[in-house]
Simulated assay, not measured.
Amino acid sequence: MNYEGKLRSLRPGDRLNYHGIEWRVIEYNTYKDRYGYETEEWLLQWEARKKYYLLREIDPQNPESAVNWYLAEPIKNAKIYLPDSQNNITNQLWHDMQHQEMPYPELKMFGKVYFFESGTKGTYEEGKDETSRITWDYWDTTHEANLALEAWQNGDLHIYSTKLVNIKAFSIAHKNLQNSWWLRALRVSLGTAGLLLLLVGCSMLIFG
């Protein structure tokens, strides 16, 4: 399994290192739309203080960089403005995203102006549950800082500050045994009862 494959195998309970901090994987979810845009999303938590999303994106509209990895920080109590206005439009964004065909060309947050690049409307899968989500992506002029807006079916608006990351900056610190690929394969091929018998048999051979 290559380096990217190892990161993609991360599931809840696993841990990884990033810039000297050990993060725990809390959730794993996926998102896709009908045009082939896809993301895999890992919710990472450091102790009880910080949460980030590690994202793997496949964007068929950008074939030069078809696969990208991002780190997204949820922004609480964000204030978003149109570039030439002092009116905070955050509270109306969910309605605008659900009912407005054309996104705002520019938005401003924390004094920085972001320019609209792309939008998606697709299905978000969390375990066996599915819901719809609309996303608008904005970038600054250097294309280093991203503002992502998500309008969820239940009325929630999620706002993220996102940046591109090099996956080689991450290393797996601990792999939960329950998430091991060989154990998942055994579950499928043997079923739960067969797997238990196999584990008991191995224990008897080892410990007598």
Rank of each mutant, 00 (worst) to 15 (best):
E64W: 02
E64S: 03
E64I: 02
A66D: 08
V67Y: 14
V67K: 15
N68Q: 15
W69D: 13
Y70W: 15
Y70S: 13
A72C: 14
A72Q: 11
E73P: 00
E73M: 13
I75M: 14
K76M: 10
K76Y: 11
K76S: 12
N77M: 09
I80M: 01
Y81E: 05
Y81Q: 03
Y81L: 01
Y81V: 01
L82H: 06
P83W: 09
P83L: 11
D84G: 01
S85H: 10
Q86C: 05
N87I: 11
N88R: 08
N88F: 07
I89F: 02
T90Q: 01
T90C: 04
T90R: 01
Q92R: 02
L93C: 04
L93M: 09
W94L: 06
W94M: 08
W94E: 10
W94A: 05
H95A: 08
H95Y: 12
D96C: 03
D96V: 02
D96H: 09
M97G: 02
H99Q: 06
Q100M: 13
E101Q: 14
E101C: 08
E101S: 14
P103R: 07
Y104Q: 05
Y104I: 04
E106S: 07
E106L: 01
E106Q: 07
L107D: 02
M109A: 06
F110K: 10
K112W: 06
K112R: 14
K112E: 09
K112D: 10
K112S: 09
Y114R: 02
F115K: 01
F115T: 01
F115I: 03
E117R: 05
S118W: 02
S118L: 04
G119N: 05
G119M: 10
T120I: 11
K121Q: 13
T123R: 12
T123H: 07
E125M: 12
E125S: 13
E126P: 13
K128N: 14
K128Y: 13
K128S: 13
D129Y: 12
E130S: 12
T131G: 06
R133C: 15
